[in-house]
């Protein structure tokens, strides 16, 4: 008998995670754990935002919200998985600005898009920050001027890492390179986290990073911040100039926001939007985001949808300027 109890006991744990079958009408959403897909490896902006959101949202909904890292192809692998997931609210996506770029880039490369933006319904914008240009603290570049001069002297020799081909950090850096009229050598990683590790390990020379992924390293003296993409300085890095004030017309915001598959039913969407709203208002969440020095930039679904549409338009132009990236 002991064995049977054991097996049944063992069986109930995955069941707890994965009770299948459609929830009956009287079941309040959510009746089982929600999985939040982060289309990047740990350590980047999406992951750093996702963990506190998942934690606090789980507390408010009284159900675990489980972060799943599904990296690949600049975020397109995980986003496509979320787009194809059952539209029942139990799979949501923590995406970055690149969500609108990747389908455009796919068409530019002459292949069918892995997903389309209209396969998603926006839930809420969580953070929006200008990216920051960082180099190794031991490196030769002390100012943005040094960096640009060096790049002009030897085009294509300074290499920079990114979150993937046409990923957020790639597009940000290319916007700056176009504004400064320089050529840099691009090395795509699987996400912002591995790119930060690569800069620390001396594998790459520079990186456009989301502030939350780099701020600890900047303050810890491992990385030097040269400038921020944005109209004004970052509150967390008051000594770092903006590209605008240095005379470069380069603006880029890395934002993170929650999406659900487009066909998710309205009552479930309402529940998710409400949960997101209560999450960003939660003191525990505010404190966690303050720890990673990331200001919360909450927008509810309608405003967020308009924001995404406007951003998509702007980024599409930037991507077309990058053009086709040759396969190596």
């Amino acid at each position: 008998m002991r064995r049977r109890t054991l097996l049944i006991g063992a069986a109930s744990l995955p069941a707890l995670v994965n009770e299948s079958g459609p929830a009956s009408a009287q079941d309040a959403f959510p009746s089982r754990p929600i999985q939040m897909i982060v289309p990047f490896p740990p350590g980047g902006v999406a992951d750093i935002s996702a963990r506190p959101v998942a934690h606090v949202m789980g507390k408010l909904l009284k159900q675990s919200v489980v972060v799943q890292n599904k990296p690949g192809a600049g975020g397109s692998v995980g986003a496509a998985l979320a787009a194809r997931a059952a539209p029942d609210g139990y799979t949501i996506l923590m995406a970055l600005s690149s969500i609108s770029v990747l389908p455009v880039a796919d068409r530019l490369q002459g292949r069918p898009a892995a997903y389309e933006l209209d396969q998603f319904a926006p839930i809420a914008l969580i953070t929006a920050d200008p990216t920051v240009l960082v180099v190794s603290a031991d490196g030769p570049y002390k100012t943005l001027k040094d960096f640009v001069e060096a790049a002009k002297a030897k085009p294509d020799k300074i290499n920079y890492g990114s979150s993937g081909v046409y990923g957020t950090l790639h597009v940000a850096m290319e916007i700056f390179a176009a504004a400064a009229d320089i050529k840099l050598f691009h090395i795509p990683y699987q996400g912002g986290g591995p790119a930060v590790a690569a800069l620390l390990g001396g594998q790459i020379d520079a990186l456009a990073s989301g502030p939350s992924a780099a701020i600890g390293q900047i303050k810890g003296g491992k990385m030097r911040a040269l400038a921020v993409w944005g109209d004004k300085r970052l509150a967390s890095l008051p000594d770092v100039p903006s590209m605008k004030e240095l005379g470069y017309d380069a603006t880029f915001y890395i934002w993170s926001g929650l999406f659900a598959p487009a066909a998710t039913p309205a009552p479930v969407m309402t529940a998710l939007r409400d949960a997101a709203k209560r999450t960003v208002e939660d003191p525990e969440f505010k404190e966690a985001m303050a720890k990673v020095e990331t200001p919360i930039a909450y927008l509810d679904a309608p405003a967020f949808a308009a924001f995404v549409a406007a951003d998509a338009k702007r980024l599409a132009t930037a991507v077309e300027r990058i053009g086709k990236v040759p396969e190596k």
Binding site: G72, G74, S76, L102, Q190, E327
Partner: peptide
């Protein structure tokens, strides 16, 4: 599966 770098 999906190519991890290019997404094909």
């Amino acid at each position: 599966g999906v190519d991890p770098v290019r997404g094909a």
